[in-house]
C-alpha cells in the first residue's frame, strides 16, 4: 500500500468514516414505527473447526432517520455434526411493509434445508443439494405468513410480494479441510442482488455477479422471492487464509467489486478475525450516500500453521 494515503479514520463518536461521511454522523435515530421487538443490530461470532465466523446485521442510516425497521436478516449456524458452517443473508425489499419477515423466513428455511441436505457430513455432495426444495420452502413459508397477516384465504405470489418479499444468498463451508488442505463450499444467490466475495492475498474476488458493475448510469431492479426460480449454485474451494464474505447490497453497493477504498478498508480490518463487537462497527462505517441496511457474514479459514 505504499504511496496510498489512508482514506479512513475514526469519527469522534467512534464510528469509522470511509472516504467522505457526508452528513451521516448528524442523523438522529428514530424508533421503527409499528414494528416491535426487532433489534436494530444483530451480531454473532465464533469458531468451529478451522473456521472463524462473524456476522452482523445493522439498521441503515436511511431507516434510522425515517423510522423504518431493519429489513435485512441473516442466519448462521452449524450442522448437527459440526462439519458444515451454514448461513444465509437476506434483504427484505423496501416497498413491502412486512419484508423484514420475508427476509427472516427465507434465512430460516434455507438454513434448515441446507442442514438437512448436508446430513451426510464429510460425505455430503454439494452438487446434489436440493435447492428447488429450499426455494419451495421459502415461498411456502412467506405465502403462509402472508395469508395469516392479511387474513385472506388465498393469494398469488405476485400479491404476496407487494407486502413481503426478499432477496437471499445461502451458503455452506466445510469446517474441516479436505486432504488437499482446501475447504469445500457452495453459494447460491436465489433472488436479486445480494452477493458473495472472497478476500485472499490478491484482494477481493466476486463469487456471484456484482450488481451494476460496469454500468455508467445507476439503476436496475431485483427479482425477489417468493417466486419460482431455478437457483444456480456456485461450488468453490476456500484455501487456508481466505475470507468469504456473504453480503446484502447495503454493503455490496459501497464495496462494488472490492477494488476501491471500501474494499481496502475491509481487507485491512479483516486481515484476521476481529473482535465480534468491533466487527459490527466495521460494517457500520459512514460513507456519504450509502444509507441502506447492511448485513455481512464473514468466514475466515484458518491459515496454515507456520
Amino acid at each position: 500500500m505504499t504511496g496510498t494515503e489512508v482514506a479512513w479514520a475514526r469519527h469522534p463518536n467512534g464510528r469509522w468514516i470511509v472516504g467522505d461521511a457526508g452528513n451521516q454522523p448528524s442523523v438522529v435515530a428514530v424508533p421503527p414505527v409499528l414494528v416491535r421487538r426487532r433489534p436494530d443490530v444483530t451480531l454473532d461470532g465464533g469458531r468451529v473447526g478451522m473456521l472463524d465466523y462473524r456476522a452482523a446485521s445493522l439498521r441503515g442510516i436511511g431507516h434510522l432517520e425515517t423510522g423504518k425497521p431493519r429489513q435485512d436478516s441473516y442466519v448462521v449456524t452449524v450442522t448437527r455434526d459440526d462439519h458444515w458452517l451454514v448461513g444465509c443473508v437476506a434483504d427484505g425489499v423496501s416497498d413491502g411493509r412486512m419484508s423484514h419477515r420475508a427476509a427472516d423466513l427465507a434465512c430460516e428455511k434455507l438454513a434448515a434445508e441446507l442442514i438437512d441436505g448436508l446430513a451426510a457430513g464429510p460425505a455430503a455432495d454439494l452438487d446434489r443439494l436440493d435447492w428447488a426444495a429450499g426455494v419451495a420452502g421459502v415461498n411456502a413459508a412467506i405465502h403462509r405468513e402472508f395469508l395469516h397477516t392479511a387474513k385472506v384465504e388465498e393469494a398469488a405470489l405476485a400479491d404476496v410480494r407487494t407486502l413481503m418479499s426478499t432477496t437471499a444468498v445461502a451458503f455452506a463451508v466445510a469446517t474441516q479441510a479436505d486432504a488437499d488442505g482446501t475447504h469445500r463450499a457452495v453459494i447460491a444467490s436465489l433472488a436479486g442482488d445480494s452477493a458473495a466475495l472472497v478476500l485472499d492475498g490478491d484482494g477481493w474476488r466476486p463469487v456471484t455477479a456484482v450488481k451494476g458493475e460496469g454500468e455508467e448510469v445507476a439503476s436496475n431492479a431485483v427479482r425477489p422471492l417468493p417466486r419460482e426460480v431455478e437457483p444456480e449454485p456456485v461450488t468453490l474451494t476456500l484455501r487456508p487464509g481466505d475470507v468469504l464474505a456473504v453480503i446484502t447490497d447495503g454493503i455490496g453497493d459501497p464495496l462494488g467489486g472490492g477494488g476501491g477504498v471500501v474494499g481496502r478498508f475491509l481487507a485491512e480490518q479483516w486481515a484476521e478475525p476481529p473482535d465480534t463487537i468491533e466487527f459490527a462497527n466495521q460494517v457500520g462505517f459512514y460513507r456519504k450516500t450509502f444509507m441502506d441496511d447492511r448485513t455481512v457474514i464473514a468466514v475466515w479459514v484458518a491459515p496454515e500453521p507456520t
Binding site: E5, V6, G19, G257, G259, V262, T289, F290
Partner: peptide, 17 residues
Amino acid sequence: MTTSATDTHGDDRLLVL
C-alpha cells in the same frame, strides 16, 4: 480526512440523484 489519490476507482463511486 484526506482523500486517497487512488480514490477514483469505479468501486469508489458515490450515488447521486
